[in-house]
Design a protein around this nucleic acid. Structure first.
Lengths: 342, 342
DNA sequence: TGCGAATTGGAAACCGGTGTCATGGTTTCA
DNA sequence: TGAAACCATGACACCGGTTTCCAATTCGCA
C-alpha cells in the first residue's frame, strides 16, 4: 500500500551527471549552451537528458541566479477580450522557453495601487513585467520597476518611455484611415466620441481624427464631439448628445468598440437604423464588434503580434535592441457603414 | 560610478536571524506560524521582520519544500469575459497570500494537448491547477495531475471527480428557472439550442430543459431542438433550423450567450423582431448579453465566487473538506423576453 | 622536446529557505 | 528526588541548480 499521492520523483541534474559520467557543472554548461564544451560531451549529455526526460527545476535555477523565470502581466483593462488576446500572444512567444506568465490585475483608481504593485514585485521577484494600457501611461509604475531592478515593457501609443521599454501601435494613423473610409463613402458630418481625459490612447485617437478632418476640410465644431470613458453606458450617453445636434452627423467614430456599441444602442432608442440613418466605426475589434447587429466596422489592433514582440523584448532585451516596436492597425470593414441618405 | 542597474539587495532570513539574535530556523518558524514558539521570541522576530521589510523568497521556499507557490489556470474557453472574471475571483482569494496565478491556455483540439499540459506541470512544478470547462470535463487531464502529484480543482456542473476536487454550479436547476419564467410569460412552444456533444455542461443544460418541459407538460419534439457548439455562428445556424418549423417556437433557450446572440442574428435575418416575434434566453451572462440589442435575458453563473472557492480549496484542501462547493445561478431578466403574440 | 596557453572537467561554496535531530531547561508525576 | 515528558531553540544537512576557482589535459609554437 504505497503512498500513491506522492509526487513521482523527477530526475535531477545529479542523475544526469552520474549517468553521463560528467560533473553537475558540465551538465549545467549543456543546459545553458555554454560554448566551451566539446561537441562530443555535449552530445552524450544531451542524449542522457532526453532519455531521462530531465527538465531543469526553475525554482533552483531561479534561486541560484537571483531571478526567476516568471513574466508578469499588469493590467487594469475594461476590455476582457483584449487582455486575453494579449495573454495569447505572450504565451505564444514563451511557449518553448522556461518562462511562465503570471497575471496581475491592478486597480488604477486605488490610492495604494503603487504599493500593491511594489510589494507584488518584491515578493515574486519577477524577471520582468508587461504593462498594458491604460496603466502603462502612469510613469510612476515604470519608476517602481526601475527602482526594483525589474525589467518592464510598456504597451502604448506614444513616447511613454525609452524605446527599449516600449511597444507601440499607431492609433493616430489608423483613425485617419477610418475617417478616410467614411469620407470615401460620402460622409462629411462626422461625429467623434472621445475617450476619457488623461488617456494617451484617447488623446492619440482624437488627434488622428482631427488631422483627418483637417485634411479633408470637413465641417467640425464642439457639437460634433462628445466624451465617454470607454464603457458602453457612456457610449450611449455621448452618442445621445451627438444625435441631438442639427444637422445630425451622418456618421460617428467612437474611440473604442464598447462605446460604438453604446452608440448603436442610442441610435436604436431614437428609431434610427444603422447603417441607413447613421454609419458607425469603432476601435479595437473586440469580440463585441463582430457580434452586435449590424456587425461593426472597426480598427483592428494587431494585439497578438504586439504581445509577442513585447514578451520577446522582455526576455531578451539585448537582441531586441533599443528600437521601439511599432505596429500598424487595420480597418476591418463590416456592415455598420453605408453611404449617407441625402 | 556604482552599477545602478543592480537589483537592490533585499534582506534575507539570515539578516533577520542575526538582528534578532536567533537562528534561521526560528525565523522560519515565525514565518510558518509554527505553534511551538514562545510568544516573546515571536514578537521580537516579527518586529525585526517589519523593520527590515523582509519578505521570504518564494523560490527558496519552493525549492526547499518541493513545490512552489504558483497556482495554474488551465483553460480553453471561447468566453473571454468568463475567463477574466474567473481570474478576478482567484486573485481575490490569493491576494494576501504568497501565491501567484499563472495562466495557461490550452488547445483542446490539439492532439498533444495532454503532453503539453504534462510538460507544463512537470516544468513549473505548480502547487496546483484550476481547470475551467470545457476541458475540466476531460478525465485524462485530471489523471495527469494525479500522476504528477499536482493538486487540482475542476470547475464543472456535475460529478466529474471526487468532491474534494470539484466546484460546481447547478446548471440544471438554473435552466429550470429560465423555462419557468418563459412559461409564466405565456410561452408553450419553446425551442432549445443545445451545446456540443460530450460537454457535461451541455448535457446538464439539456436535461434541465427537458425536466422543465415535462413538468410543465409543454409540447416537445425533435423539431424543437437544434445543436450548436457554443459559438456565435453555430447559434445562427441552429436558430435558423428551429425557425423553419411550423408552427414556429415563440421562444428559444440557447445553452450559452454566444449562441443566443447568434439566434438573435438569425431572427433578424428573417425580419423577426425580438422580443415581439421571438423571446430569447441565454446562459452565462457574459458581457455580450448586456450589450446586444435587445439586452439578453440570461442565466448568471456566480463565477467570481466560484473562482474564489476553487482557489481556497486548492490552497488549503484540508480546511475545505471533501464537500464539493455548489453554487446557485440566477436568472437575469432583461429585454429579450415578452409574452408571445398569441 | 619543453613550456606556456587554451580547453575541459571537477570540487566546493553558494543562493535562501525548510526538515531532522540534538540540546538544555523546565515541568509533571511517581 | 529522580525519571520522564515536554517545551523552546539551535546546528546542520539538504533542496537543485549556478558560480568560482583550480587541476588536468591537450595544443601550439619555439
Amino acid at each position: 500500500m504505497a503512498d500513491e499521492r506522492k509526487r513521482e520523483q523527477q530526475p535531477t541534474i545529479n542523475d544526469v551527471a552520474r549517468l553521463s559520467g560528467v560533473s553537475k557543472k558540465t551538465v549545467s554548461r549543456v543546459i545553458n549552451r555554454s560554448p566551451l564544451l566539446s561537441a562530443e560531451t555535449r552530445k552524450r549529455v544531451e542524449s542522457v537528458i532526453a532519455q531521462l526526460g530531465y527538465v531543469p527545476n526553475p525554482q533552483a535555477r531561479g534561486l541560484a541566479m537571483g531571478r526567476n523565470f516568471l513574466i508578469g502581466l499588469l493590467h487594469d483593462n475594461p476590455n476582457a477580450q483584449m487582455v486575453l488576446n494579449f495573454q495569447e500572444g505572450v504565451l505564444e512567444a514563451i511557449r518553448e522557453t522556461e518562462f511562465a506568465l503570471v497575471v496581475r490585475p491592478v486597480d488604477r483608481h486605488s490610492p495604494d495601487m503603487l504599493d500593491n504593485v511594489r510589494s507584488f514585485l518584491e515578493q515574486q521577484r519577477l524577471w520582468g513585467v508587461l504593462i498594458l494600457p491604460p496603466i502603462s501611461e502612469n510613469p510612476a509604475l515604470a519608476q517602481v520597476c526601475r527602482d526594483l531592478g525589474c525589467g518592464y515593457v510598456l504597451m502604448g501609443s506614444a513616447k511613454l518611455d525609452e524605446p527599449a521599454h516600449l511597444v507601440e501601435s499607431n492609433d493616430r494613423e489608423a483613425v485617419g484611415k477610418a475617417v478616410d473610409y467614411l469620407v470615401s463613402q460620402g460622409h462629411r458630418r462626422i461625429g467623434l466620441i472621445v475617450g476619457p481625459n488623461g488617456f494617451r490612447s484617447a488623446q492619440e485617437r482624437r488627434e488622428g481624427f482631427l488631422e483627418a478632418v483637417a485634411r479633408h476640410k470637413l465641417p467640425f465644431g464642439p457639437e460634433l464631439v462628445a466624451q465617454g470613458n470607454y464603457t458602453f453606458d457612456t457610449g450611449v450617453a455621448a452618442a445621445g448628445r451627438l444625435l441631438e445636434a442639427a444637422p445630425r452627423p451622418t456618421a460617428i467614430f467612437a474611440s473604442n468598440d464598447e462605446m460604438a456599441a453604446g452608440a448603436l444602442h442610442a441610435a436604436r432608442q431614437r428609431e434610427m437604423e444603422v447603417p441607413r440613418d447613421l454609419s458607425l466605426i469603432g476601435f479595437d475589434d473586440t469580440a463585441i464588434a463582430a457580434h452586435i447587429w449590424p456587425p461593426l466596422t472597426t480598427v483592428r489592433w494587431p494585439i497578438v503580434s504586439m504581445a509577442r514582440a513585447a514578451a520577446l523584448k522582455l526576455i531578451n532585451p539585448a537582441e531586441a535592441g533599443d528600437q521601439p516596436s511599432r505596429f500598424l492597425s487595420d480597418l476591418v470593414r463590416r456592415a455598420s457603414v453605408a453611404p449617407p441618405l441625402t
